[in-house]
Amino acid sequence: MNKQLMDIQQDGDSLFNEFFEWLEGQYDTASGGFYYAQSSKRSGQFTPDIESTGQALNILERCRLLDRLNASVREKTIRYFQSKQDPMTGLFYDTDPNMRLDDVMVGRATGYSIGALGKFGASPLYPFPKQSAATPAYMESPQTLEAWLRSISLTNSWRGCDKLSHCATYVLALSMGERAPYLAELFAYLADLQHPSTGLWGNGSRYVQISGTFKLHLLYNRFGIPMQRVDHIYDSILDVLRKEHATDMCYIRNPISLLSSMKISIPLDEMTEIAEITIANMAKLKREDGAFSREIDRSPPAPNIAQVKKGETYPDMPIPVPLGLGLVESDMNASTQAVLIRYTLRELSGLPVQHLPVPQSLLSFSQI
């Protein structure tokens, strides 16, 4: 076990001082959900949202803290997610009507909701998905899927690959016999688009391309299909970490998660360098209220378009769905990623599992 790597990780853990106090403060006793940021809760302009609540539960689960939640909190959380399901489609929606227009947000919200209910041994109230209402037209045949794939712009690799990857939900709903021709179209198309020199997909900054590639790697893993040019992807990750500034928590998390999903052996000296760069980048996003913000200069008010540079547009750009006021403060999106980064770095470094310390008085929600 490498002492230098252990020391780097120990220094990184100091970034989580007062983190769990912030997390507990985001809880809403009335609904059983969690707010995105302190401004979301204090302003009275927002309600707890599905992603933030799902992300908060993921933090608690990753840190082995779910068992601190009492029966009342668990029941409220179950009711919160069940109340978000639309009986007509089986999908899950927030209160902002514009959220329904962003299929990436809907897909993520549905995934978070089903996952959260499963943590407590509960189920959705209605079948998911109801094929007649929820299945998109592009799933009519392998040929219509191919046409839809080609219609997705990868001008912004991150957004395009994220949107593209959500077809997996509907492909997986098919029987094994029906699925094969759809998979053939999907992965033949992706193979044609992979950049031969970098191993990445689409356009945008190198961090944006790595983020898009991470989304696709999850798609490949979901169907057990090996991704090509993994060595080129690894070299691209090292290059961007060394040369470019990470101005978004996703730019810090996505390379680490991509390395983890690739399941490759990383030389010790390069792993040490990766850990040092990553933790230094995280420190720039630590906020006075105790947790982390998505962007270097603020918490983005609408995280569904936070990956877009100011003034940038691209085809199929979503309508903003605000969750906060855009202040210099922590937000749930960045904070759940920070926890994931911390645990994944330990795993990549070959260090034993060691959970973040949490005061015993916290996260019992005993005020309920």
Rank of each mutant, 00 (worst) to 15 (best):
N2P: 00
D13N: 06
D13E: 08
E21Q: 14
W22G: 05
E24K: 03
E24H: 10
Y27N: 02
A30I: 13
A30K: 15
G32W: 12
G33L: 07
Q38D: 14
S39C: 02
K41W: 15
D49M: 04
I50K: 00
S52Q: 12
S52E: 10
A56F: 12
E61C: 10
R62V: 15
C63H: 15
R64H: 14
N70K: 08
A71D: 06
E75R: 14
P97K: 03
N98R: 11
D102W: 11
T110R: 05
T110H: 13
G111D: 05
S113A: 09
G121P: 10
S123I: 15
L125H: 08
P127F: 15
P129D: 03
K130Q: 12
T135M: 03
T135R: 08
P136N: 02
P136A: 06
Q143D: 11
S151I: 06
T155F: 13
S175C: 09
P181D: 06
A188D: 10
Q194G: 07
G199N: 02
G199A: 02
L200V: 14
V208K: 02
S211D: 00
G212R: 07
N221S: 13
R229K: 06
D231Y: 03
Y234E: 04
Y234A: 14
K243M: 12
T247L: 05
D248T: 13
M249D: 00
M249C: 03
Y251L: 07
L258R: 00
S260G: 11
S261H: 09
L268C: 13
A275W: 10
I277S: 10
A283S: 08
A283Q: 11
F292D: 04
R298Q: 12
P300K: 02
Y314R: 05
M317P: 00
V328P: 00
D331A: 08
S335L: 10
S335M: 10
Y343M: 07
L345P: 08
L348R: 05
G350S: 11
L356K: 10
V358R: 03
S361E: 09
I368T: 01
